[in-house]
Amino acid sequence: MSAPRTATSGRRRHITRVVSTLARLGLAGIWLVAGGSKVSDLGASVRAVNAYELLPNGAAQIVGSALPFIEIMIGLLLLAGLFTRAAAIVSAGLFVMFIFGIASAWARGLQIDCGCFGGGGALAAGESPTYFWETLRDIGFLAAAGFLILRPRTWLSLDGVLLGGPSGPDTSKG
């Protein structure tokens, strides 16, 4: 009777690892594209942060200048599978802030491009913001980060190599 439970448990663990690995690599790609698209034009990144009208100009300059490098760093950590849970926690925190920023701009009637993947700032006349889709997208990214926080064990990760075994010690329940 215990054999089917073991087989089911093993299958569930395998599926969890597949999903965790896909979440880690997917988020890595998102962060690398987002940061990479902004790093060559930090002025545009600062304008995008300023457009939300949530931070004083000096703080918006710091955030807009630092954000692309933070995104690239998170992307590289996730790509390598190094400090996976910590990178997923930072990812989740950023996604919550992005969702809040977009919702705030939407509620206040601002007509801006989110600047999530470069560009950003005020929209040209006749352009409409896509706040609903941007929020929905970021909620999906937040869900992936949340899953990775709960299940950080993935294949092809440096965490696994450094912590022992192909995927590291089993500190999660699946």
Score class of each variant (00 low, 15 high):
2 S>G: 12
3 A>S: 11
5 R>I: 07
6 T>W: 04
7 A>Q: 10
7 A>I: 15
9 S>A: 13
10 G>E: 12
12 R>Y: 05
13 R>L: 08
14 H>P: 00
16 T>M: 10
16 T>S: 12
17 R>W: 03
22 L>N: 00
24 R>A: 09
24 R>C: 05
25 L>I: 14
27 L>Q: 01
28 A>T: 02
29 G>M: 06
30 I>S: 01
31 W>R: 05
32 L>V: 03
33 V>L: 15
34 A>H: 12
39 V>G: 00
39 V>L: 13
39 V>Y: 11
39 V>I: 15
40 S>Q: 11
40 S>R: 13
40 S>G: 10
42 L>C: 02
43 G>V: 13
43 G>D: 14
45 S>W: 10
46 V>T: 11
48 A>E: 03
49 V>R: 08
49 V>T: 15
49 V>D: 05
49 V>L: 09
51 A>M: 04
52 Y>P: 01
54 L>N: 03
54 L>C: 04
54 L>E: 02
55 L>G: 05
55 L>F: 15
57 N>A: 14
57 N>G: 06
58 G>I: 08
60 A>M: 05
61 Q>H: 10
63 V>T: 11
63 V>N: 04
66 A>E: 06
67 L>F: 09
67 L>W: 05
67 L>Q: 12
72 I>N: 03
72 I>F: 09
75 G>W: 07
78 L>P: 00
79 L>C: 10
79 L>E: 05
80 A>V: 10
82 L>G: 11
82 L>M: 15
83 F>E: 03
83 F>G: 10
84 T>W: 08
88 A>K: 06
93 G>W: 03
94 L>G: 12
98 F>Y: 14
98 F>P: 00
101 G>W: 02
103 A>S: 15
103 A>R: 08
103 A>Q: 07
104 S>A: 12
106 W>Q: 13
106 W>C: 06
107 A>V: 09
108 R>W: 06
108 R>S: 13
112 I>Y: 04
112 I>F: 06
114 C>F: 03
116 C>Y: 02
117 F>K: 02
118 G>N: 05
119 G>R: 03
120 G>N: 02
120 G>W: 00
120 G>I: 02
122 A>M: 09
123 L>F: 08
126 G>S: 07
127 E>P: 01
127 E>F: 11
127 E>Y: 07
128 S>M: 13
129 P>G: 04
129 P>H: 08
129 P>N: 09
131 Y>E: 08
131 Y>C: 08
132 F>Q: 13
133 W>P: 00
134 E>L: 12
135 T>G: 14
135 T>M: 14
135 T>S: 07
137 R>C: 03
137 R>F: 07
138 D>F: 02
139 I>D: 01
141 F>E: 00
141 F>M: 13
143 A>G: 13
143 A>I: 14
147 F>A: 04
147 F>C: 04
147 F>R: 01
148 L>H: 00
149 I>H: 04
150 L>S: 10
151 R>K: 06
152 P>A: 12
153 R>H: 06
156 L>N: 08
157 S>I: 09
158 L>M: 13
159 D>I: 10
160 G>L: 07
161 V>M: 12
162 L>T: 03
164 G>Q: 06
166 P>A: 13
167 S>D: 11
168 G>I: 04
169 P>G: 14
169 P>L: 15
172 S>C: 07
172 S>N: 13
172 S>E: 15
173 K>N: 09
173 K>H: 11
174 G>Y: 11
